[in-house]
Design a protein around this nucleic acid. Structure first.
Lengths: 348, 348
DNA sequence: TTGAAAGCGCTAACAC
DNA sequence: GTGTTAGCGCTTTCAA
């Protein structure tokens, strides 16, 4: 058993094989102009010595790479499931390596991004999730092509000056609320975002309000419930707590619009525990279109974000830009109403 | 609007402020022995120029860091939800920075780990998920403290020679199968791992078999179902497909042991669609103890892996080792039977 | 308190 | 084909 040897460098390998460092470098980089015999000898030594190239040094030296990073904010967000695979596949097919770097909810995406770019000599970047606000300006310090995918833009703010892939939250929320209204519901509760949220929560709230307004229904603030601050955002648990709050508030409603499917699962539970039958007593709609919705009972009616297509687009847009086209584009995807069994038609 | 300026370096900042590079270095690293006035001036320039230090160069130079990496295999695995937070929090409290690096299912964890260690000058590493098989030997090339958390060790293989945190899959599977047997079930279907799996799937299968054997029940191979290769492992969809297969096979069973909770959600759906009532017609138990189980209807009986405690332990073990204690320990956590409403007692 | 200079490990010119 | 060598951008002695 060897002790904690100071990790060996390219020079150690070179010395070991009695060759120059560049020969070792060539061997490990599959340089064609090296004698196959030498290459084998070097590679053998590499294995022998457990040599692993120091990427920092490598990245420092190299002028360009074929590496794209996927920067994810909120790694455990169930919503992204189903996006990693297409992104990875598309990127591979386009001939790029890729790495996933996750940052936690509180991290500064912009900073992480800049650091990552420098560190890895990235040639492209996809930022998944997060929001763009005051730090948006600083995004411009990223000097390689990048695209923002499903990144929330606070209501009222201008779109960032970079390529984006997303949906129109306001419009989608409008549509699904309108769907409920068309089905005869006039008292629709909203399980929304955090109080004071200015991103997705706010956009979806706006859509909800507009639908009510256009249908001539006054907004009843007592029908609007906000996420609990002490429970993770957009979680099942939060949906459960919010729905319980709605029920115990005693306010009357025949339908609920829950702004995320995961929260809707929690809402289901709260309704069930209260003996309220979906959709007979109360109709429920979610938002996102995660796969779990189809496995609920009753299956969940929701607005589906076309995640695989969005993932594909994020990659194709990035590839386009990496090839030199520095046009900025905002790709707004249509959401699709996924009809489940959780909504009933109300006849007065 | 500035063009794509070649990203600026410490020398650019130095020149801009008319100071030496080391002064800039001191400023950005909060070196105490620098005049506050100079520091401010430099920091101002840093902002002005959008200067971001190149981590590769930094890591290359620095001899030690306080950075720990969390290497996750299968980033979209719902199971890990609830582990990121404690790990992050514990690490912060212990005074370490940390980064999350995700590798996809097919990547070579060992290689990624070695590269990451060198690249980031890590002082510690937690590997979450994945399995240890032929590459186990090469783990030894990681020359910093690291711990394997919820990493599957193939059946029959010796435990790796490093600190681990996990559960006894065989024993846990035994317990929950035994629980079903004690509740009067004698024909228990198993929705297991992939055919030929040698890790968790195999261990849980062994536990199932042992429970049957010890209860004097012969193993009926027709009761054992394997994951479909064309559907993601351990997914809801796979559980659904497997359960459908079990139902349509016509084989008789009064209970099902599903080796993951997520799969159990799919199984629920298949049973429901077939008009089979849980737990009256068929009892269902899962494995893992993810939060969603409590939100199902009926709530899921399952073996709960104490994820937060495992996360805490992973960190405390790592910290212990980083402080110089190079003792290896295998921490095997007890799983806990979480009783839900999905199991009925069968009286003959 | 600050600046000059020596590398960290690697790649890529350039010589041989 | 292979070796020598000049940096990549940074931190860190060591002098001033």
């Amino acid at each position: 058993m060897e002790g904690k040897t100071k990790s060996c460098t390219i020079r150690d390998v070179a010395r070991y094989c009695k060759v120059g460092v560049s020969t070792v470098s060539r061997a490990i980089n599959d340089d064609p102009e090296i004698a196959p015999a030498t290459r084998e000898r070097v590679l053998e030594a590499v294995r022998e010595l457990h040599y692993v190239p120091n990427n920092s040094a490598r990245n420092l030296k190299m002028t360009e790479s074929r590496t794209v990073a996927l920067l994810v904010r909120g790694i455990d967000n169930y919503f992204y499931q189903g996006m990693y695979d297409p992104i990875q596949k598309d990127l591979r097919e386009a001939g790029y390596d890729y790495i996933i770097h996750a940052v936690d909810e509180v991290a500064d995406v912009t900073k992480e991004a800049s650091a990552l770019v420098k560190e890895k000599r990235l040639c492209g970047l996809i930022i998944l999730g997060g929001r763009v606000d005051k730090s948006a300006r600083e995004l411009s310090s990223i000097d390689i092509p990048y695209v923002l995918c499903t990144v929330a833009v606070p209501y009222g703010k201008a779109m960032p000056e970079c390529t984006t892939v997303g949906i129109d939250d306001e419009r989608s929320a409008f549509c699904i609320t309108d769907y409920l209204i068309k089905r005869g519901h006039s008292r629709i509760a909203l399980l929304g975002g955090k109080k004071g949220d200015s991103a997705v929560g706010a956009r979806r709230l706006e859509g909800y309000k507009r639908a009510c307004n256009e249908a001539g229904q006054p907004i009843d603030e007592s029908l609007i419930f906000y996420m609990h601050d002490d429970i993770p955002e957009f979680s099942v648990e939060n949906g459960y707590a919010m729905m319980k709050e709605a029920i115990s508030s005693g306010v009357d409603f025949s339908a609920v619009f829950v702004i995320s499917d995961l929260m809707a699962i929690g809402a289901y539970k709260a309704l069930f525990e209260a003996g309220i039958k979906i959709p007979y007593d109360v109709s429920v709609v979610g938002f996102d279109g995660i796969n779990l919705g189809k496995f609920l009972h009753p299956t969940l009616t929701t607005m589906c974000q076309p995640r695989p297509q969005m993932a594909d687009k994020a990659v194709s847009e990035l590839v386009r830009m990496m090839k030199g086209d520095d046009h900025i584009r905002h790709n707004v995807f249509e959401t699709e109403l996924l009809t489940g069994e959780s909504v009933s038609t109300k006849k007065d």
